[in-house]
Amino acid sequence: MRPLAHRLRRRLPGLAGGILVAFVMVVLFGPVLMLALFSFNDSSIISLPWEGFTTKWYEEAWSNGQARDAVVNSLIVATIVMVLSVVLGTLAAWGLTRLRFRGRGFIAGLNGAVLVVPWLIIGVAGLIFFSEIGVSLSLETITLMHLVVTFPLVVAIVSAGLVRFQRSLEEAAIDLGATQRQMLRYVVLPQVGPSIAAASIFAFAWSFNNFEISFFNGGFEQTFPVWVFSILRQSENLPVVNAVSTVIAAAQILAVFGAWALMKRLTRSEGEGSETLTGLLTGGAR
């Protein structure tokens, strides 16, 4: 009796921890799994009973012009935003961490402010701004506003990477005869490469997932989140939305795990690989 109680007491914390983790995972991913499951149900009502397996909702989604346009629009906008954010954000991060000049504090503060102000308010401000200056809303205005809220995130992630790594290495490279360009290529890039990779993934996801800003700053052309929102405002749940959502969720899962595998390879050379990786994964916390 005694050993059993003892063993139980020793195992209990681990068991409780396991149950907690399992509970959180079920709550976070269970609904999305159900959504995916019901995209294969042969019934226009999303509920039990199970009527049989079908892929017709996927065919319907594929031939649904609005859905396809929305996804394509989101992909185009997110790609442009990602590329420009990484370029502008890396430039700004380098300027803010490596150059001394007057007004540096103001610019750093402005970058930080963008990350704290809620997207709803930036979205409304953008709408009012564009209407006051007489610019009509379109995918271009969405892209511009996404860029403005996204590149400061890249600045934050890449700056953190640049601060972590020692400047004396740059000076050593220059002392040993490297040119400015060689120093950047062979000393700085390998060090901040993982940060830039992480930043680009987050930048793409921020733009692709952004609803508030796209909603207030978009015209007739919808992005994917705006399309889902407008469908759900108008009607009951639709299996076609299940199908499109499943494809998107699957792609996002693949992207996150792919990025993880890639970063694992990039950071393997360093000793503190997993620490760095955790830092990068969590660095995008808004």
């Binding site: 995972m25 159900m34 959504l35 997932n209 994917f224 989140p225 889902v228 759900l232 998107i248 899962i253």
Partner: peptide
């Protein structure tokens, strides 16, 4: 576990809201 938490955040918020609405 951390990776799954990051994944939970990266999932499209509209998909997540829709999934709950369905349930």
């Amino acid at each position: 576990i951390l990776l799954f938490l990051v994944l939970a955040d990266e999932l499209n918020p509209m998909v997540r809201i829709y999934a709950w609405r369905m349930l």
